[in-house]
């Protein structure tokens, strides 16, 4: 492999890392702060992508409006789902998995039966392509990277600097204590879940131009987002950032050498080994011994 080709692979790998980061954030937040594995996450991505298609591509509204709509709709849907369903199953792993899986079926089959099997294409909102020597990068991927980092920082800001964020962290540390302090943990739960789902919808809208929008879009993200969460751990969002980069760079380079399936298999093996060695994720917040 020539150096310039390797460079190209590394650059597109890095670009994809930010896409993966964005598509995983909502999942990590819900898992990390609520101990709920949200199997409906990737179907929320799919729904966000559809919202982007209808608002931006079909209705011709500005892209940013599509993003905000996707976030808002997913946020509300998340709040509803948490209040109606998830809140009954806290602490029960199998039940939450089954319930969120049921929701994911409803979303996916709903999309299929309502919107059909057709592929939909969403145009890039920015079309320029950058070129350095023989290395190419679509400008939209830069936008995605920016958005992705922005959302990460915003989330950290929300969690560490706002009152709600403090409540979320307190509730995560010690529920009964937090409750006895008069904090409404129910509200905190609903907000956290809704925010996680909202991010999933937003991420779906963001990746819409990068993918073909169809009802199977969620499925194609399932493996990567979940591996990412397992490897990055749930105690630190930087772990997610690191594992996103690790996964996508490996996938990109190994795909260049052989093919993308081999790359995924190798990455899965790496994830299994990493989890064995560092069960709390790549960056453990602090040793708790």
């Amino acid at each position: 492999m020539s150096p310039s080709m390797l460079l190209q692979l590394l650059v597109s790998g890095l670009a994809s890392s930010f896409v993966l980061l964005l598509t995983s954030l909502g999942l990590v937040i819900i898992l990390g702060y609520m101990k709920v594995v949200n199997l409906a996450h990737t179907e929320m991505l799919m729904s966000g992508a559809f919202i982007c298609y209808y608002v931006y591509q079909a209705a011709g509204l500005p892209f940013i409006v599509a993003l905000l709509t996707a976030f808002a709709v997913s946020f509300l849907f998340g709040a509803l789902v948490e209040r109606l369903i998830i809140c009954h199953f806290y602490g029960k792993m199998s039940e939450t998995l089954l319930a969120t899986y049921a929701i994911s079926i409803l979303l996916k089959q709903g999309a299929l039966l309502l919107l059909g099997k057709n592929y939909k294409k969403v145009d890039y909102p920015v079309k320029a392509v950058f070129q350095w020597g023989s290395v190419y990068l679509e400008s939209y991927k830069l936008v995605v990277a920016g958005l992705s980092v922005g959302v990460l920082l915003l989330t950290l800001l929300l969690i560490y600097k706002t009152k709600t964020g403090r409540m979320i962290r307190a509730a995560m540390q010690n529920r009964s204590m937090t409750e006895s302090l008069g904090i409404n943990t129910k509200k905190v739960d609903t907000l956290t879940f809704a925010y996680g789902m909202g991010l999933a919808g937003l991420a779906g809208a963001v990746i819409a131009p990068l993918s073909t929008v169809t009802y199977t879009l969620g499925e194609s993200w399932l493996t990567n987002t979940f591996m990412n969460v397992v490897m990055g751990g749930v105690s630190s969002l930087f772990g997610t950032l690191a594992s996103s980069v690790l996964i996508q760079e490996s996938v990109s380079v190994i795909s260049g050498l052989s093919n993308s399936v081999t790359a995924q298999i190798i990455v899965l093996l790496v994830v299994i080994v990493v989890v064995r060695l560092k069960p709390d994720g790549l960056f453990t917040a602090k040793e708790r011994r």
């Binding site: 979940f226 397992v230 899965l268 299994i272 989890v275 069960p279 709390d280």
Partner: peptide, 29 residues
């Protein structure tokens, strides 16, 4: 790899889920 004491039970579910996703791609490939 997965049954050391420290690994959370839910990770077993997620790893096996990822495995299924990849296995399908693998046999197609």
């Amino acid at each position: 790899f997965m049954f050391s004491g420290k690994i959370r039970g839910v990770f077993f579910s997620l790893i096996t889920l990822a495995l299924a996703g990849i296995a399908e791609l693998f046999v197609i490939n």
